[in-house]
Amino acid sequence: MRFVAIPTDVVAGYRDGGPDANGQVPERQVAEGGGNPCRHCLGMIPERAEMLVLAHRPFPAPQPYAEIGPIFLCAANCEAGGGEALPAMLASPEYIVRGYGADDRIVYGTGGVVATGAILTRAAELFADPRVQYLHVRSARNNCYQCRIER
Rank of each mutant, 00 (worst) to 15 (best):
Y65C: 08
P60E: 14
C41H: 02
I71S: 01
R57W: 04
M89A: 06
A91I: 12
M44E: 14
I68W: 10
M51K: 13
E67L: 07
G83M: 02
R98Y: 10
F72T: 04
M89S: 08
E47C: 02
L86S: 06
A88M: 07
G82L: 00
P62N: 06
A49K: 02
P70V: 15
L73N: 06
L54R: 08
E94I: 07
M89W: 01
A91H: 09
G99N: 15
M51L: 15
E79Q: 10
L90H: 04
G69V: 05
A61Q: 09
G101D: 15
G101C: 08
G83I: 04
E50D: 13
G99D: 15
I71C: 07
I96D: 01
A61F: 15
L42I: 06
E94Q: 10
I96W: 05
P62R: 06
L86Q: 10
A49P: 01
A91F: 12
P70Y: 02
P93V: 03
E79S: 12
G43R: 12
A88E: 14
G101L: 15
M44I: 13
I45N: 06
Y100T: 03
E67M: 05
P70M: 09
L90Y: 08
Y100L: 07
A76K: 12
P70S: 04
E50L: 08
D104I: 08
V97C: 15
P62K: 11
I71W: 03
R98K: 10
A55G: 11
L73V: 13
Y65W: 13
Y95W: 07
G43H: 11
A66G: 07
P64I: 04
P64E: 09
D103Y: 05
P93N: 06
G99P: 14
L52G: 02
A91P: 04
G81C: 04
R48T: 13
A55L: 01
A85D: 13
F59I: 03
G99M: 06
A55C: 11
I71H: 07
E67A: 11
E79I: 01
G101M: 02
G43A: 15
M51V: 11
A66C: 11
A85W: 04
I68D: 06
F72L: 01
P64V: 04
V97S: 08
N77T: 01
M51R: 11
N77K: 06
L52S: 05
R57M: 11
A80L: 00
Y65L: 07
Q63N: 14
F59E: 13
L73C: 14
L73H: 05
L90C: 09
P58M: 04
G83F: 09
G69M: 04
L42F: 10
